[in-house]
Design a binder for these strands. Sequence first.
DNA 1: ACAAAAATGTAGCACATGCTACAATCCTGA
DNA 2: TCAGGATTGTAGCATGTGCTACATTTTTGT
Lengths: 179, 179
Amino acid sequence: MTAPTPTQAKLLMPMADYVLENGLQTASLRPLAKAAGTSDRMLIYHFDSKDVLLGHIMRFIAEQMATGLATTLSSTGPMPAHTLLTRVWDLAQRSEMRRTLRIWLELTSMAARGDDTTQAVAQDIADRFLDWTAAHLKTPTLAPVVLTHFEGLVVLQEAGRADVANQSLAALKDILGER
Amino acid sequence: MTAPTPTQAKLLMPMADYVLENGLQTASLRPLAKAAGTSDRMLIYHFDSKDVLLGHIMRFIAEQMATGLATTLSSTGPMPAHTLLTRVWDLAQRSEMRRTLRIWLELTSMAARGDDTTQAVAQDIADRFLDWTAAHLKTPTLAPVVLTHFEGLVVLQEAGRADVANQSLAALKDILGER
DNA sequence: ACAAAAATGTAGCACATGCTACAATCCTGA
DNA sequence: TCAGGATTGTAGCATGTGCTACATTTTTGT
């Protein structure tokens, strides 16, 4: 929960990058240390334990996702649900966004069984997604529907059924109309 | 890819149960062996390697999910999209179903980075979900939408935002109407 | 300037992991 | 019956894990 000290902050960026590239499960101290240009010994010294360290990394990534969202479509006004969904889906195809969403999925599946920190971070990210969605909708009440559908699209894509995701998107266009 | 021998089949059920209860990531040879009443040595003997073993376990679980689906709502005719979604969502609240869906999420997040076997199983399960959905819909064309939404509901629930999932379900009822 | 504290390097421990070597037992068919 | 394969137990290896002990250097406050 405590905010990172300056020393910690400097280490967090390269480690977050490593996690985004290689996943959370496989993130062990030695590779993380190497990515940050230090040693496992130092990571424990600065962060006390691996759990605490991973907590910081997850929060850092969450923050990164949030600021990413904030600057995305920031200049556009509220739009119909389907327009927003389509635009976000386009963005989600960009490789940098995909790896972020992949971590988000991984985090969610960990949260189901994980410790309090993991659950809190997952919940936090979900909340930010929801707020951001509502802020861009002509009908903010639809935010839960749009978010739910987006999460579903991500799952199908990672399950290797991007085609079904696209069919779903197309079908939803007719259903939602101009809401 | 090869079907399990009788000897393998006997071991698979308790191991699948262990995985459903404890997750895929933490499934190492010794606990799996203990669950199946044998030794790690024997597991390797019967399955050659852990990767092959996990492949069998995943396929076993997939099969279990498929037959579970086949017998679920089997006596009911085709129904409107929202009715089906609501019914399935109710079923998903049952603890035995929830742990299955949890594994499904975990498998999906693994497939994103995983080997061919993992990806194939994930894709297979998604396909079966889709077919099953289409078979129960008055308008089978809506199957992708319904499935996508369901996956999204699962994600939100595991992320600790079941409330948002429920809001989403309620809102979708108005949108879908009687289709 | 200098003692205390912070920061770092080196080495290694204790444990869990997948997997193997080797020997012993069990079971089958001729 | 009994040779040969199938099956299993015991012990252990090599590697990766989180973390620590200890000594050393660097920084900081007075």
